[in-house]
Design a protein around this nucleic acid. Sequence first.
DNA 1: AAGTGGTCTAGACCACAGA
DNA 2: CTGTGGTCTAGACCACTTT
Lengths: 239, 239
Amino acid sequence: MPYLDNRLMARPLYLQVRDVLVQRIVVGQWKPGGTLPNETLLAQQLGISIGTVRKALDLMESERIVTRRQGRGTFVNDYASETLFPFSTFHNFEGQRISGTKRAKSISRVQADAEEASRLGLQRGEELIKVERLREHQGRIFMTETCLLPARYFNRLPDDLGPYRLSALAQLNGILVGPADERVDVALATAEDAKDLDVADGTPLLRLDRTIFSDQGDRLEWRVARCALRHERYVVRFV
Amino acid sequence: MPYLDNRLMARPLYLQVRDVLVQRIVVGQWKPGGTLPNETLLAQQLGISIGTVRKALDLMESERIVTRRQGRGTFVNDYASETLFPFSTFHNFEGQRISGTKRAKSISRVQADAEEASRLGLQRGEELIKVERLREHQGRIFMTETCLLPARYFNRLPDDLGPYRLSALAQLNGILVGPADERVDVALATAEDAKDLDVADGTPLLRLDRTIFSDQGDRLEWRVARCALRHERYVVRFV
DNA sequence: AAGTGGTCTAGACCACAGA
DNA sequence: CTGTGGTCTAGACCACTTT
């Protein structure tokens, strides 16, 4: 039995099963958008009960790794497609979530300074990918953002990094995106912000300072965004 | 069988069980902080399998209605105690959630104007309880808030409404708090804000415009807060 | 009709907490 | 030692989707 440890005191079986299945997705055995084998087959292959497989799959669905549909099957979520909005908080006035279209202003590689290293949990001087970009909605730019990603995690890059989504980029590199936290406060527009966002210099903007973690707890991205909300709303939903 | 409908095509049994158990909590058969009967007993009393009871209780735990502890029992969450922070987004710089201490500035009863009625889904002129209060942390006031509650839902009021928490107030009135949403943007300090928060007139503040719903979808509270963050951070956590 | 995930059952055994 | 929730099993049957 190469995978599972059924001894007493071991980590619960369904968690081990979850890890095995996630690993198979990460290495590409089951691809984004594709289907997993059905529950009965998985249970037979793993030599365990179907109820335990279900518990692992339920967990994976709650982690937004797969989607299960009665009568159809269990599908690997595809974060490159536009249907999933993992960390989007922007809504239009009708209450629908929006992502906006992203456009790169600059893409470069830099060495982490003290603050950047600290925020990303790296050594000073480590290589970072720096993406500055603008986000627009209904034809107007409402947000500027500066994204920093540790280069070590992202060896495979898409042709155009500008509009890319972190969750898709992670999926491309066999990384599972975990939680994120975002600090929200007010900042005054710099001259550059003012130009990009078409507001007066010194206008108070909503500043979003976000860190995204992997499922292992590694910090994958530090992003600072500044927003001049026009047709958009920043909405937090508590459940 | 007064409670459960076991026919084909019926609503799933575990959801019916959830509703029955929630109802018993709401009417006070099991009180906040108290324990529910154990799983085996519940299953016997309801004439169903223990697995179905577990599924209902798992759901209720994810809804933050009960807390389950291995070896001890299943407990009704007590929202009047200070251990639960249902909708708190404020953190100190060490990353711990804080609630701050609340102090009432004024408590009154008003008739809903057009906007208030619209935001709370009521008829214009309906009676509202209006609470204006201040929140402080580390000895400094960092937030002013104006809360509006439809009087119809809150017949029972505690002695001192000022520092009360909505979730506790709802529990007192047999209402189950559901989701909430909060719009975040920037507003400039009015003269009154400036005085309360000890900032200059016109200082840009973080404005939090929150609506809290019941589990039935009724709107229980509309609150608008203005924050001058000093030792506090507004943090949104995505999971 | 065949195949999928969803519900429900009945029971065994384990880990944890408290008397 | 007893009682609690947590895990795991084996199987039946249901509802939904596609062939």
